[in-house]
Amino acid sequence: MKISFVVPTRNSARTLDACLASLRAQTHPDVEVLVVDNGSTDGTVEIAGRHAHQVLQWGPERSAQRNHGTDRSIGDVVVFIDSDMVLEPQVATRIEERFAAEPDTGALVIPERSFGEGFLARCREMEKMLYVGDPAVESPRAFRREVINRVGGWNEELTAAEDWDLADRTRLATTIGRVPAWIWHDEGRIRLRVTFAKKRYYGRWIDQYVRMNADSSGGKFVRIALLRRPARLLRHPVLTAGLATLKLTEAAGLALGIRDSRTTAGSRAA
């Protein structure tokens, strides 16, 4: 079973070397690595050239990049990895084992942990652990090729919530399983101002996703998992306070992004 990893990039030089090195270090003997770049100017392409089997240029956003990578890959399984992620060496092997043992399973979740620099990165690390096993938050990353083709790939109209959208369509088409190995997400140094701006940018697509999925999207935003383990939150009151600040900042950014989207739509309609 050949496994293709598709990695969309844009100015990803800080994290890309570690990401791609982890893909090439997989214990599985038949791995393909494709980087689909979108006009990087920071050395991303040079780093990709040292590791990837194919380095492609495509845009305008990451959903289109992932679809192009799927089209150009040749694996029986396609796995979508972000450029700031590092995989444990056995991930690809575990993917093959799961698909071989579960022929009715068409896609797999790879659980995530995070790491980074500073206090807010520690808050995010705690948050990610609370989400493990929560289907409202986790989305599949590994797909049998026939399944990703059948569900139509990534929605190129979305640049945020695109993973939720794909997960929604995948659940209607096949069974989703899990891999007993981890992705480690490099958060770097989290800054509230940057987080706010990023969420405001993504808010326009969040609004679009909500409009497309009015009946089922609510659970994606009310992160019940944060309340299911109160003992853990109480054991770490300082981290919990930091996490609350982080989530409020994100919520404010998303709210403004959604408002911007609706204001723009209203102006066009007028």
Rank of each mutant, 00 (worst) to 15 (best):
V222S: 04
N213F: 07
W154R: 09
P180S: 13
R223M: 11
Y202T: 07
T249P: 02
F143M: 06
R193P: 00
R122Q: 12
D168R: 04
S139G: 15
K198Y: 14
E157I: 06
C123S: 12
L158C: 10
G188Y: 02
V147N: 06
P237W: 04
A244N: 06
R223N: 11
D186Y: 07
Y131I: 04
D215R: 11
E127D: 15
R232D: 11
Q208D: 10
R124D: 15
L243M: 10
G152I: 02
R204M: 08
D186N: 09
T159F: 13
W154V: 08
L192V: 13
A160N: 07
G133K: 00
I224L: 09
L246S: 02
E157Y: 09
H185M: 10
L246R: 02
C123M: 08
L192H: 12
K220T: 08
M126T: 11
G177Q: 00
E127R: 14
D168F: 08
R122T: 07
W205Q: 14
M212S: 10
D165H: 06
V179M: 00
I190M: 06
N149C: 07
K247G: 05
F221I: 05
R191V: 05
T249E: 07
S217M: 02
Y201V: 05
R235V: 04
I176K: 01
A231K: 13
D207Y: 05
T159A: 13
E187A: 15
P230Y: 01
I190Y: 03
P140A: 04
R171F: 09
R124W: 12
G188L: 02
T175Y: 05
T249L: 06
V132H: 05
A136M: 07
A231N: 09
L234M: 14
V132D: 07
S216P: 00
L234E: 11
W182K: 05
S139C: 15
R150T: 08
E157S: 14
L233N: 15
A241I: 08
W184Q: 14
D134W: 03
R144A: 05
N155A: 10
R191F: 03
R232S: 10
R122D: 10
G177S: 01
T195Y: 08
A160E: 09
W164N: 08
E156M: 12
R229S: 15
L234S: 11
Y202R: 09
L226Q: 13
R178F: 12
L120G: 04
M212R: 09
I206A: 09
K220P: 01
R211P: 01
T245P: 05
Y202M: 10
G219N: 05
G242S: 01
E127H: 14
P135G: 12
I183K: 02
L248K: 00
G133M: 00
G152W: 03
G152T: 02
V132I: 12
E250F: 07
I176E: 02
L243F: 10
L166C: 12
R200C: 04
G133E: 00
A136R: 08
A142Y: 00
T240E: 00
R204E: 13
Y209A: 13
A161V: 03
A197K: 14
G203M: 04
R223Q: 12
R171Q: 08
L166N: 11
R211K: 07
E157L: 11
A225G: 12
R189Q: 15
I190P: 03
L248A: 04
S217N: 03
G203N: 04
L234I: 13
P180E: 15
R141G: 14
R229C: 15
R122H: 09
R150Q: 11
